[in-house]
C-alpha cells in the first residue's frame, strides 16, 4: 500500500479545529492568508477566537505577544518568509526575550512552494528562529506529525516556531503517535551510515535508504523533527554507531538542521558529515519537483552524499 499524499497545513488546520473545540485558551491569528495556512479551519469552529490581522505580520506578532501575556495561547500563522523574516525582531523581543507562550506557525516553507519563486520560498527561517534564545523550533516530517506537533506545542509553555510546507507529499509517520518535543525518531535502524532529516526530507531519506539497501549499504534514518532543542543523545548515538552522517533539509545548509548537527558533532565527536540542503542561494520559480531536483534535494542526492561520507570514514580509519 502506498502512503497517502497529504498537505501538512491541512492537518495543522485540523489540529487547530480540535484545539478550538477542546481548549478555550487557544486563539489563532492570521494575516490575510487563512485560506492558505488553513487557520480557516479554526475560524470555522471558534470564530470569536480567530483574529484576522490583515496584511500586517509585525503587528500580528505584537498582538500575539500581548494575548500571551494575558493568559491566551496564541497561534500566529502566515507564510514562512513573512513569519520568520518580516517580523524577526518583533519575535526576538516581544516573544523570545519576554519568553511568552506564542506559537509562530509557518506554512509554505522551502523550495517546494514552487512557481511563486524566491520571494516566497523560505530557506532561512530555521536559521533565523534557531538563533533566538528560548525558542523551540519544530519541523514535522509529514501531515500526521504536523497534526500531533500542533497538539503538543499547545500543551507546551513557551515560544515555538513550527515550519511546514505547501505541497502534498507522502506521509511516513504513524497517524496516532503523540509528538514529543525534543525527541528524535529512529525511522529505520542501520549500521553503515546515518541519514538525519527533517520535514519533507525525511521521506527522501527513507527513499535513499531503500536505494542504498539495494547496494548492500545499511542506512539508519532519523527524523529530527525538533531542531531545537536538538536531541543530542540521538545524534551522538547514531554517529557513534555508523561513523558517517548525512543531514537533509529543505533549507539552507547555513544555520539549519545540518548546521545544528555539525556544530554538535564537531565539538563532541568529530564525524565525517555531509549536508544536503541549499547552498547559499535563493530559489526561483518552477514546479516543486523541478526545483527539488535542480537544487539537489532528492533521494539521489542523499545517496551520493552517503557514499561520500562512507568513503571519508573509511579513508580515515
Amino acid at each position: 500500500m502506498t502512503a497517502p499524499k497529504l498537505a501538512q497545513r491541512t492537518y495543522y488546520g485540523k489540529a487547530l479545529a480540535q484545539l478550538g473545540r477542546d481548549n478555550p485558551q487557544v486563539v489563532v491569528l492570521d494575516a490575510d492568508l487563512a485560506g492558505s495556512t488553513k487557520t480557516i479551519s479554526f475560524k470555522k469552529v471558534a470564530p470569536e477566537r480567530f483574529i484576522e490581522c490583515g496584511i500586517a505580520e509585525a503587528d500580528m506578532i505584537g498582538i500575539a505577544a500581548g494575548l500571551a501575556a494575558s493568559g491566551k495561547i496564541p497561534f500566529a500563522s502566515t507564510f514562512g518568509v513573512f513569519a520568520s523574516g518580516r517580523c524577526w525582531e518583533q519575535i526576538r523581543m516581544a516573544v523570545a526575550y519576554a519568553n511568552l507562550n506564542v506559537k509562530v506557525v509557518a506554512t509554505h516553507c522551502g523550495l517546494s512552494v514552487g512557481p511563486d519563486g524566491a520571494t516566497h520560498q523560505a530557506l532561512e527561517d530555521v536559521a533565523l528562529m534557531r538563533e533566538l534564545p528560548n525558542m523551540t523550533v519544530i519541523v514535522p516530517a509529514d501531515a500526521y506529525e504536523a497534526f500531533q506537533a500542533t497538539l503538543a506545542i499547545a500543551d507546551y509553555i513557551g515560544p515555538v516556531y513550527m515550519r511546514m510546507g505547501r505541497s502534498e507529499f507522502p506521509v511516513c509517520t504513524p497517524e496516532e503517535k503523540p509528538f514529543e518535543i525534543g525527541k528524535a525518531t529512529v525511522m529505520l535502524k542501520g549500521t553503515d551510515v546515518s541519514l538525519i532529516g527533517c520535514g519533507q526530507m525525511v521521506q527522501a531519506c527513507l527513499e535513499a535508504a531503500d536505494l542504498l539497501e539495494k547496494e548492500g549499504i545499511s542506512a539508519e534514518v532519523i527524523n529530527m523533527a525538533t531542531i531545537k532543542p536538538l536531541d543530542l543523545d540521538a545524534v551522538y548515538d547514531t554517529a557513534a554507531k555508523t561513523g558517517a552522517v548525512v543531514t537533509a533539509e529543505e533549507h539552507s545548509v547555513i544555520g539549519g538542521l545540518g548546521s545544528a548537527v555539525a556544530e554538535f558533532l564537531s565539538e563532541v565527536r568529530p564525524t565525517p558529515l555531509a549536508r544536503v540542503g541549499t547552498y547559499d542561494t535563493f530559489g526561483e520559480s518552477g514546479s516543486a519537483d523541478e526545483l527539488m531536483k535542480k537544487y539537489g534535494l532528492t533521494a539521489a542526492d542523499i545517496v551520493r552524499e552517503a557514499h561520500n561520507v562512507i568513503e571519508m570514514r573509511d579513508e580515515k580509519s
Binding site: 511563486d116 524566491a118 520559480s285 518552477g286 526545483l291
Partner: peptide, 11 residues
C-alpha cells in the same frame, strides 16, 4: 511566466 529558468519570475 513562472516556469523553471524563465526571466519572468513569479514576482
Amino acid at each position: 511566466l513562472r516556469k523553471l529558468g524563465s526571466r519572468l519570475q513569479g514576482h
